[in-house]
Amino acid sequence: MLRAVVTGNVWSTRRIDGLPSGAFLEVEVAGGGSRLVAFDVLGSGVGESVLVVQGSVAAAWFPGTPPPVDALIIGSIDAPGDDGEAALPAGSRIPGRR
C-alpha cells in the first residue's frame, strides 16, 4: 500500500467496455516523488492525501471479471493530529487504547 497525494486529473474521452464508473487521477507517491495514474471510485480531489494499492490487489477489488486497473485509490487520509496520529472527534477513542 502506498501513501500518495492527488496531483491532477487524467482526462480520457474513450474507455474500454467494462470499466466501472470512476476517474483516473495522477498521484505522487510520498517519499519517492514518483507519479502514477490511479483509478478512483471515492471522488478524491487534487491535493488530497490518499492510500493506493497496486497490482492484483487493485484488480481484485472489482466484482466479476477484473478490469485492467493496476492502481486503485482505496482510502482518503485525514489530517494528522499534533502527535502524528489521525485526528479523532472529541470524546472518541481507538479501540484497545486508553
Rank of each mutant, 00 (worst) to 15 (best):
E85C: 12
G31E: 05
A86D: 04
P67N: 02
A58F: 00
G81I: 07
G22K: 05
V10T: 02
D70M: 15
D17Y: 10
G32L: 14
V69P: 07
G55I: 02
V5Q: 11
A79C: 11
I73L: 10
R97G: 09
S21W: 04
V53C: 02
V10A: 06
G64W: 00
E48A: 15
G45N: 14
V10N: 00
G96A: 06
A71H: 09
G47D: 09
V37Y: 03
F24V: 05
E85D: 12
A58K: 01
G33K: 04
P63D: 04
E26G: 08
F62S: 01
R35H: 13
A90D: 10
I94G: 03
S92G: 04
S49G: 11
G55H: 08
G32D: 14
P68N: 12
G75W: 05
G81V: 05
R14W: 08
G64F: 05
D70Q: 14
G8L: 07
V52W: 04
D82N: 14
F62D: 00
A30P: 02
A38W: 02
A86W: 06
F24R: 09
V37N: 05
P63R: 07
D70H: 13
V50C: 09
L72K: 06
P68Y: 01
P80T: 10
N9T: 14
R93E: 12
S21N: 14
R93Y: 09
G8Q: 03
I74N: 01
D40P: 07
V41A: 15
A90Y: 03
P95D: 00
V52H: 03
P80I: 09
I73V: 08
S44I: 04
M1I: 10
S34L: 14
S49R: 11
E85F: 11
A59E: 01
P66I: 01
A30Y: 09
F24M: 11
G91D: 01
P20S: 06
P20K: 09
A87W: 07
F62N: 03
L88E: 01
E28P: 07
A38D: 02
P80R: 07
G96V: 01
I74P: 00
